[in-house]
């Protein structure tokens, strides 16, 4: 195979990868719009937020779901005191990573910010 041939093959290869993924992107967008209409019509009530997508709150009790609501992951009531949900999600991920215990086997009750002046 000559150098020019290899260039053509590579360009074609990149074009194929882009075409397939752009097509997928197109189908996903269409799918989301169609399903969005279905959801609006009240036929789908199982929507849930991707972690970190909910509006931030700095204090209070929030239900947390990391992943699917099918029992695969931790779920329950988590009390956040002085921390937002993003920070709480990071803390939980770090604890899981450092302790090498899957999130599905960890249960967090409270995450409280410590006042450094104390």
């Amino acid at each position: 195979m000559t150098f020019i041939d290899s260039l053509w093959v590579s360009l074609l290869g990149m074009a194929v990868v882009f075409t397939v993924l752009i097509l997928l992107s197109f189908f996903i967008t269409i799918l989301s719009q169609i399903l969005g209409l279905v959801v609006k019509n009240g036929q789908d009530t199982n929507g849930y937020a991707i972690p970190g997508s909910a509006a931030q709150r700095t204090e209070g009790t929030v239900p947390y779901i990391l992943g699917e609501p099918d029992g695969d992951w931790s779920a329950g009531e988590l009390k956040l005191i002085g921390v937002d949900e993003k920070t709480a999600a990071m803390i939980m991920a770090i604890v899981s990573d450092e302790s090498e215990i899957p999130l599905s086997q960890l249960q967090f009750k409270t995450i409280k910010a410590i006042d450094s002046s104390l």
Binding site: L24, L31, S32, D44, N46, G47, Y48, A49, G52, S53
Partner: peptide, 17 residues
């Protein structure tokens, strides 16, 4: 922040792909 993704979207996704 990312938008919410419904369960139905997640089920249809692998079939479409």
């Amino acid at each position: 922040q990312l938008r919410e993704v419904s369960k139905l979207e997640k089920i249809v996704f692998p079939i479409i792909v």
